[in-house]
């Protein structure tokens, strides 16, 4: 999928950078199938495993993401963990990131037990503008009103509302099954110029305070504003070398230092 296509997709998704990063980190995977490791009150319907105890503000959602065309499809997994005012994006083992309702962004490096916090003003100073609603719902709920509403259907655990949308130029189309109760897509397909991007919810479970703490506690945190005074810190030096902290014109880099597009806006 080309960068321009990705940029168009970012109109809808808060995860443009995530897609490219996932590809870089995980490479080509086979399509995932629901596992039969259900526990508690899990329900399985099609390939979705879900637990109706999941709350809109406390859940863990696994998405299977595929991108490509008829000839080549790449797939990877995204795990979203929402706990009150924080949502965590996990795409691979090296690092994961959290967005908070107040606009703060934290990048965790579990192997080193270190994290870097970007306050909203830090991100703005780097010319990074983020729609927090998109980060928390993958699609900005406000954008739904621009789509054509289809029929409702009852799926495992939740009612899903179908939406569709075709851009004025007819070049981009979107098909969405939306779980209104959670404010999350159950399925989302965006098609443009023969390329297709699909998000499919494969597992949804509740998350406890303890599970959330495991993801966010015990890290030695550094303010991004202090990076400039910390380049003698071996961790910072290493992360800069690998491109994690270096922000360039987009603000985000992949595991191998390649620049990702992520909410950058030059204010044309």
């Amino acid at each position: 999928m080309s960068r321009s296509t990705l940029k168009s997709v970012s109109l809808f998704l808060g995860v443009t950078g995530s897609l490219l990063m996932g590809n870089l980190l995980l490479g080509k995977l086979a399509m995932a199938h629901a596992q039969s490791d259900s526990q508690g009150h899990l329900h399985a319907a099609g390939t979705l495993i879900c637990d109706s105890a999941a709350q809109p503000t406390r859940f863990q959602a696994s998405y299977q993401i595929t991108a490509g065309n008829d000839d080549k499809v790449q797939a990877h997994q995204l795990i979203l963990t929402r706990f009150d005012d924080t949502i965590i994006y996990q795409r691979g083992p090296v690092s994961y990131e959290a967005w908070q309702k107040n606009g703060e962004y934290i990048r965790y490096f579990p192997e080193q037990n270190r994290s870097i916090s970007y306050r909203r003003s830090d991100l703005l100073a780097l010319n990074i503008h983020t729609d927090i609603d998109k980060q928390f719902h993958l699609i900005s709920p406000a954008a739904l009103s621009q789509f054509d509403k289809g029929e409702q259907h009852q799926a495992a655990c939740f009612t899903q509302q179908r939406y569709s949308h075709t851009s004025k130029s007819q070049r981009q189309s979107l098909a969405l099954d939306w779980i209104d109760e959670l404010g999350l897509p159950a399925s989302l397909t965006i098609t443009q110029s023969g390329q297709q991007l699909n998000y499919r919810l494969t597992k949804l479970t509740p998350v406890s305070q303890q599970e959330f703490n495991l993801l966010t506690s015990g890290y030695q945190d550094l303010d991004f504003a202090d990076v400039g005074d910390s380049e003698s810190d071996p961790f910072i030096a290493k992360m800069i070398t690998q491109g994690f902290i270096q922000h360039g014109s987009s603000g985000f880099y992949s595991a191998d230092g390649k620049q990702l597009e992520g909410g950058h806006d030059h204010h044309h």
């Binding site: 703005l124 780097l126 010319n127 380049e231 902290i245 922000h247 014109s249």
Partner: peptide, 19 residues
């Protein structure tokens, strides 16, 4: 066509460094 006077504009520089 960039508004370089916007408060979020990042000035260009020569040598790439994290900070």
């Amino acid at each position: 066509s960039v508004d370089t006077q916007d408060k979020d504009f990042m000035q260009q520089s020569l040598i790439p460094m994290g900070s």
